[in-house]
Design a protein around this nucleic acid. Sequence first.
DNA 1: CGTATTTGTCTATTGTTCTATACAAACGAA
DNA 2: TTCGTTTGTATAGAACAATAGACAAATACG
Lengths: 241, 241
Amino acid sequence: MKRKSGVALWRQIADQIRQAISAGTLGADGKLPPEMVLSERFGVNRHTLRSAIAALVQEGVLRAEQGRGTFVESRQKLSYPISARTRFSTGLRSQTRDRRSNLLAHAVEPAGKRVAEGLGLPEDAPVVRLETLSEADDRPVSRATSWFDAERFPGYAEAYAETGSITLAFQRYGIEDYFRKSTLVSARHADAADLADLKLSAGAIVLVAVAVNVDAEGVPIQYAETRFVADRVELSVSTEA
Amino acid sequence: MKRKSGVALWRQIADQIRQAISAGTLGADGKLPPEMVLSERFGVNRHTLRSAIAALVQEGVLRAEQGRGTFVESRQKLSYPISARTRFSTGLRSQTRDRRSNLLAHAVEPAGKRVAEGLGLPEDAPVVRLETLSEADDRPVSRATSWFDAERFPGYAEAYAETGSITLAFQRYGIEDYFRKSTLVSARHADAADLADLKLSAGAIVLVAVAVNVDAEGVPIQYAETRFVADRVELSVSTEA
DNA sequence: CGTATTTGTCTATTGTTCTATACAAACGAA
DNA sequence: TTCGTTTGTATAGAACAATAGACAAATACG
């Protein structure tokens, strides 16, 4: 717990409590120890600890009831599978009641260097860009930017808007099956745009997955960068033969 | 860029600059714009921006020279492959000159719930715990905690200390080959212990990989939690058939 | 009911962060 | 050298974070 580090004590404590809850070392019985106990354990004033709790209440992690105590609201992370057959919807369907994908924006534009490389197209070739937001149980879970070859998939954005699914939209172009070729996983602080879309507060972490999907012949058909809310998602990589 | 969010402005800006550098949108030519330009772009006072730069200089990301400008010191991330044949050493060997693994501590102890499940042992069965730190080019890269069945691998810690390698230590017990069965990837703020071991400052992010390795028969032989410095590492998942 | 426990609110004080302004020091180029 | 550009240092005031102490309000339990 460090002073003058650029991160307020209450936020450092909030991060620790959130993590301890998901690790099961705190609030395993559904209830947090009293504020006095916690503030002594962390070596800070009760008010500082209360700021941390207030932030977690705001996030929906905790619920405080006057006279009774502070309770854990939600514990389990969504586990998002990554394999050759990775599909967003199928992976999460079993873990959550209500899942939605919203199309925020779309455009046709020249491919940048990274996108062109990922899709195996010449630089500046026209590509369709999709900006999507996924929610589970009325909370934002991920924010993705996808690119598709505009010549092979004209009007892809409309197909996606109508079907609400990457898989179904591909079927309109005769692609019955596709595979995840590679995924690069990194993590960083959410930028201003993601902070707003994913309804996060400053300092929040996103897991970034940069993926290339290919058709049955191995030709790249989708290049995507997905930012997952790190507090609510983990990626599950199964590498069984 | 949000005020009273619990994260100091200079740290938010430092995070953004670091990210922009690794994305190539800033300092692509090796040099940063002048402080006045950047402070206006971020909408803050020049001093606030200077604090951000000072932090990045401390981290080794930037180098400031009076009268000349501020320069980018290092850009590329290490890419750590995750596949059925994942080996720590082989994956990174080609990307860095100097790689080392240090054994920080070891102990024999009863398996906790998670460890017992991962290794397929009864709860409280004796296990060997290894605490290791990996460095590349004299900078900490990852911090791992590994568990092994103490009955099947008695004295594993010593075997590891002598060989300096998980793979070589396994060979002493007749295991010529092993496979990565599953990997759970998540991200969180580094806790106090990792902050110290990995020489990070408050608010830093670690990529957490929880992995199970199995022998040729599919029996779990290692359960490990590795914390990677998110600023210096990305995980590369290849899921080709 | 009365008491202990627990969260919620208020005020005051101190230290850290951010802003504003000014000037010094090093460098590059005319 | 001289000038413009850029990083480094200093000082003072405003906004925010953390500590301290006291008390109110709701709940649980004998």
